Measured scan of single mutants.
Amino acid sequence: TFELKGKVGKVVKIAEDHYLVEVEGDKWIAYSDEKLSLGDRVMVVDVDGLKLKVKRIP
């Protein structure tokens, strides 16, 4: 999972307290300090167990 840091993915689902992002064909639970929208491109900035911390990228 640490090899996911720096990888780019996209938001595929928005849940009440987390996001579902697809990175390299796999779906992961993710969270972010900013509000994300469906389809946003994101970069993995940290890995916390099986959850990814992501940030939006242009």
Rank of each mutant, 00 (worst) to 15 (best):
Lys53His: 13
Val45Gln: 05
Ser32Pro: 11
Val54Ser: 01
Tyr31Glu: 13
Ser37Gln: 12
Met43Trp: 03
Val47Thr: 03
Val54Tyr: 00
Val44Lys: 00
Lys53Ile: 14
Asp26Val: 05
Glu34His: 08
Gly49Met: 13
Met43Glu: 15
Val47Trp: 03
Leu36Phe: 05
Lys5Glu: 15
Glu24Tyr: 02
Met43Asn: 04
Val45Lys: 04
His18Gln: 13
Lys27Asp: 14
Val8Met: 08
His18Ile: 14
Ser37Ile: 14
Glu16Ala: 11
Lys53Leu: 13
Ser37Tyr: 09
Val12Phe: 06
Val42Asn: 01
Lys13Asn: 10
Met43Tyr: 03
Gly9Val: 03
Lys51Gln: 10
Glu22Thr: 13
Ala30Gln: 00
Asp46Phe: 02
Lys7Tyr: 04
Asp48Ala: 05
Glu34Lys: 07
Gly25Tyr: 12
Tyr19Trp: 12
Leu50Gly: 14
Glu22Ser: 05
Glu22Leu: 11
Ala30Gly: 11
His18Asp: 08
Leu38Val: 09
Val23His: 01
Val54Asp: 00
Leu38Tyr: 09
Ala15Thr: 08
Val44Cys: 04
Lys51Phe: 10
Asp17Thr: 07
Ser37Lys: 13
Val47Lys: 03
Thr1Phe: 15
Phe2Leu: 15
Asp17Tyr: 09
Ser37Arg: 08
Leu4Ile: 10
Leu20Asn: 09
Lys10Tyr: 11
Val42Pro: 02
Ala15Met: 07
Val47Met: 04
Lys51Cys: 07
Val11Asp: 00
Leu36Pro: 05
Val47Gly: 03
Asp40Val: 06
Asp17Gln: 10
Gly49Trp: 10
Lys55Pro: 00
Lys51Ala: 11
Val45Met: 14
Lys51Thr: 10
Trp28Ser: 02
Gly9Arg: 00
Leu20Arg: 04
Val23Asp: 01
Leu52Gln: 01
Gly9Pro: 00
Ser32Gly: 11
Ile14Pro: 14
Ala15Ile: 10
Lys35Leu: 10
Gly39Gln: 12
Val42Met: 09
Ser37Asn: 12
Lys10Asp: 12
Val47Gln: 05
Lys7Val: 03
Gly39Ser: 12
Glu22Asn: 05
Tyr31Phe: 10
Lys13Glu: 09
Glu3Gly: 01
Asp33Ile: 12
Val11Met: 08
Asp46Val: 03
Ile29Thr: 10
Asp33Arg: 06
Ala15Lys: 07
Val21Arg: 01
Gly49Ser: 10
Lys10Met: 11
Glu22His: 08
Asp40Ser: 09
Trp28His: 06
Trp28Ala: 02
Gly49Asp: 10
Lys53Pro: 01
Gly9Asp: 00
Glu3Arg: 01
Glu3Tyr: 03
Arg41Asp: 14
Lys55Trp: 06
Ile29Leu: 13
Val8Tyr: 04
